[in-house]
Amino acid sequence: MTEKRLTLALMEPPYESATSTTAFRIISAALNKGIHVNVFAYEGAVCLALKDQAPHANPVKGTTVEEEEHPTTRAFVSSLLEVGNGNPLLTWINCGLCVDERGAANAVDGVKRGSPADFLKMAQESTNTLVIPTR
């Protein structure tokens, strides 16, 4: 059977809209089906994997950090990279210029640095490509 590979271009920054969640769900579903996934994170999406993100307490509800279990996008990215660490393989590339602009170089383990040329290569090698833009 021919191997399937899906490429996603993400642009939405974390904690902005439901789009990041949908993108994570697509990546997770594809990996669970044995489909290789490429992600090219562009613009604000490079911050999805930012290691400095910290979960927080909720003073409105009076919950602690532990009780709140606040989900961070960097934790989702790490989990997905763990699932896609071989076969299927998740390749996550952050746009280098976008990273530099945002001072977001401290990404979780497994995230690579690249350029739109990598996105072109990914798209050419994939079964299909889905671009998820910001509004």
Binding site: K4, I26, A29, N32, I35, T127, N128, T129, V131, I132
Partner: peptide
């Protein structure tokens, strides 16, 4: 569900627009 969407996305001759 999203699983079905993924199945469709990896079919030949499929173009996806978000």
């Amino acid at each position: 569900g999203i699983e079905h969407l993924v199945d469709v996305l990896v079919q030949d001759h499929t173009k996806a627009i978000w």
